[in-house]
Amino acid sequence: MIWDILIRAAVVGILLSVLLSVMSYFVVLRKMTFAGVGIAHSAFGGIALSFLLGLGGYLLPIVFSVLSSLLIAFMYKKGKMSEDSAIDVIFVFSMAFGVFILSMSDGYSANMLGILFGNILSVSYVDFILSLFVFVFGFLFIAYYFSHFQLMSYNEELAYISGVRVDVLYYMFWVVLSIIIVLAIKLIGIILVNAFLVLPTLVGLNLAKNYKNIVFVSMLSSTISIIAGISIAYLLDTPAGATIVLVFILLWVFSIAYNKIKT
């Protein structure tokens, strides 16, 4: 029974984090980590609201998160005012709104902890199937359009001239990312989602030079952190989400050391 839960948790964790790792390549390269983090936090409000309304499903959080990610993506694109400040406002609003709502529902601190660190050991069969589905869809999306996004990150005007539908793909990227994020938050929590939006590619950049190797190393490092994190959490009886983050950060520190020694 416990093995069943552990394996289910590991599979879901690995699928979602591998997907986030590939997405993180573009999030980091385009210097949009703050936008990514903003989207992850703006899902908080939607999740809190669905707790209050007693809706356990994903629909409300996904709608909430997709809308705020489109708003953030739009502001990034137009960039008239300082977009970082605008993202900050959405981010802070959603967190405050979420906490406000959670405080009205029962089990405030348990829910709060659940959203921040997730509960990967409570993956239901529905979560499992849904994650599988999102993984297949999301991975096909990012793999299919990888060279399109690569060119867009290099220079958007060139992408446009080469026939890439720049605007459509740009917004689709954020919509897909926000759906993955909502799913991932329920399972691994906001803190871990933020970690997976940035750390995989940072480790990849430290250990490899070519984009293909960077993406590969980032997926591998996520997988290692998930497996090691869950095992340690099981053995020491610590919270899985937090343990995974700590393992990942340790990995990142090693990758910096490796990079320093090499050069």
Partner: peptide, 30 residues
């Protein structure tokens, strides 16, 4: 088209050969 130098992202982790062929966008290019 050669855009102004400063608006190209020269920090991309790609080799010169990949940069020269970067406009060859293909499905599953990864």
């Amino acid at each position: 088209y050669l855009p102004q130098h400063a608006i190209v992202n020269w920090n991309m982790p790609i080799r010169v050969i990949d940069a020269v062929l970067i406009e060859n966008v293909k499905p599953f290019g990864l």
